[in-house]
Design a protein around this nucleic acid. Structure first.
Lengths: 355, 355
DNA sequence: CTGAAAGCGCTTACAG
DNA sequence: CTGAAAGCGCTTACAG
């Protein structure tokens, strides 16, 4: 698998030392124009490109960052992969991708460490503490993406980039209450993920401030299928919820499908739905999901910034929290004209359907 | 960024030679149990892990394969990333991810080559020929995923894994005709991509054999937005198409949204829709898209097989084509009871809506 | 500016 | 089985 010539061979052809060849390909190194020209010419005829592995070995910087992901069914993550890897590419880094499958994870990550990655981005909600700890122990900078450090991570090393999930939960609560809802259900994600926990906490607090509480609760584990099952569970019995807040769009969409196509309920006339993330599908015509948007570009930018700070050690350790906002679409019913508390048989509302 | 100790340090602690340490971590190398034990113990206390970069430098195998992708909006690709990278991980390879953005592509790929990747998988419909050629020229094995080599790629080096897109197009044609459609439109993807071209060719041939031809045609460029615009274009004028075959699910879904929410047409009562890929969204309750399924697990397995053959040079160069099948859901109307050719006002059909 | 030399951390014949 | 030694392809002080 030889990929072209070596610096030695280029040097011979250009009749200069190997050092000169190296300098020509090292930005900022001092080479005369004459030498550079001859080296470049020789390199071109030989198809020479410096061997990044050898370079990394001696400079101790691989310019590789590992990206650890969970399953990609939730379209939020492909979005992150795309934007983050493009951003990193622009900064001269390369992404070593790693899809973590619960089981093999710990072992495979150890392998990644062997590649002397300059940093690790963990964007997986379901990562074992053990694993996160292992990363931190390795001394390689780690940034947790869309995920808070576990409480017992004592090291101050762990930095994170996340949305203000607590605020986002509050936003959802206020919006639903403002629209006159009174039996509001919550569909949780993974019980031990910081995103679900924070969103729920914000949601619960938001409702309480407004004199309400969660009417009913079920767990969807951030899975499409389990969210569907959880929705059925939520919507059985005599008094149905009149609104649902799902911990992410992926589950909100799963819920809408069940509501409409299995339970025969109308969204938003019979039940309003709010999600979290604002994945592309949330804007699709069939869903028109009102949701709390996570600002992915801002999160990615923050990640790259923190990554660079850590790798160059140019700033004190810090984490970044990005603000959320709610985007209104068609899955929440419009405000009632008046006397919302009197309204009975809310399903008769003449709210317009999703655009 | 030191990640633990070196073999030299382990050797000192274990009181053996550095060679012995190396052998301990090289499967199949001969080390006595006594030596191995001492090395393992020393390695453990020092947190030693062989440096993969140094190893790759000397073995000339990096165990890294580059994965080149286009934009990930189309959920088909995240599916591929996930399955392919997990498969590769199981085989002991690591994935260097590379999202190609038309412009920067050529340059960035050259960088990837510097990392001495063992192979390259190109799963991007919109890759410049120049680039593909560059990969081939580098001498690194390249497999084109879901994409055929360009006709002018003379090198026999280029191998590919793809579905039988031509057959898939035929399947769609037969299905639509069998259901009594007579004004069938085609929504093309990227004009210069082999997938769109082959699917269309199979579709056109399939229709012709049955005495029909494409009623109307527009280009969606595999983009959601452009597919929506193309759909509006297709469905204007006095005589509307009664069916639509889109070159992939991503566009088929975009089309369904336009059909239903902008044009007020019913699917499948007014118009039937068939897609291609079978992405997870195709099965969502709101779409229930009948589509030609690409067998991703089989494609991934074939890719890994070919990759290994090339890297070990254990078999002659070959490509693999995977068969397609059509999965029926709710976006195509049921067969008419009788006399389909007489039927006028097809929209009055009492076909049942999507489940 | 330039070259000779040391060295990054490893693997692998080569002797023993 | 084991160690000393060469070498993978590069960068980077060190002299000049």
């Amino acid at each position: 698998m030889r990929t072209g010539a070596t610096a030695q061979e280029v040097a011979r052809l250009a009749k200069v030392s190997q050092s000169a060849v190296s300098r020509t390909f090292t930005p900022g190194a001092s080479v005369s124009d004459a030498t550079r020209e001859r080296v470049v010419a020789a390199a071109k005829t030989l198809g020479y490109r410096p061997n990044a592995l050898a370079r990394s070995l001696i400079t101790r910087r691989s310019h590789i960052v590992a990206l650890v992901m969970g399953y990609l069914q939730n379209q939020f993550y492909p979005l992150v992969i795309q934007q983050l890897s493009q951003s990193l590419q622009r900064e001269g880094y390369h992404v070593l991708m790693f899809i973590s499958d619960e089981s093999e994870t710990d072992n495979a990550l150890a392998e990644i460490l062997q590649y002397q990655v300059d940093a690790i981005v963990i964007a997986s909600a379901m990562l074992s503490k053990n694993l996160a700890q292992q990363c931190v122990d390795s001394g390689v900078p780690v940034v947790l993406f869309n995920r808070l450090p576990d409480v017992d991570t004592t090291r101050p090393h762990t930095i994170s980039v996340s949305s203000d999930n607590y605020e986002g939960g509050q936003l959802a609560a206020r919006h639903l209450v403002a629209r006159g809802h009174q039996r509001i259900a919550f569909l949780a994600g993974l019980e031990n993920s910081s995103t679900s926990v924070e969103r729920e906490r914000g949601f619960v607090d938001g409702l309480r401030v407004l004199g309400q509480s969660v009417w009913k609760r079920a767990v969807g584990h951030y899975s499409f299928e389990r969210a569907q099952a959880a929705t059925e569970e939520l919507f059985q019995g005599p008094r149905l919820p009149d609104a649902l807040f799902a911990a992410n769009d992926h589950m909100a969409i799963a819920a809408m499908d069940v509501l409409r196509h299995q339970l025969g309920l109308r969204v938003p006339q019979d039940v309003s739905v709010v999600g979290f993330d604002d994945v592309p599908q949330a804007a699709w015509g069939s869903y028109q999901l009102t949701t709390v948007v996570q600002d992915v570009p801002a999160m990615v930018e923050a990640t790259v910034t923190l990554l660079k700070e850590r790798m160059d050690n140019t700033a004190p350790v810090r984490s970044i929290v990005i603000g959320c906002r709610l985007v209104e679409r068609g899955s929440v019913r419009p405000a009632l004209a008046a006397a919302p508390l009197r309204a009975i048989g809310r399903r008769k509302t003449n709210a317009s359907p999703a655009a």
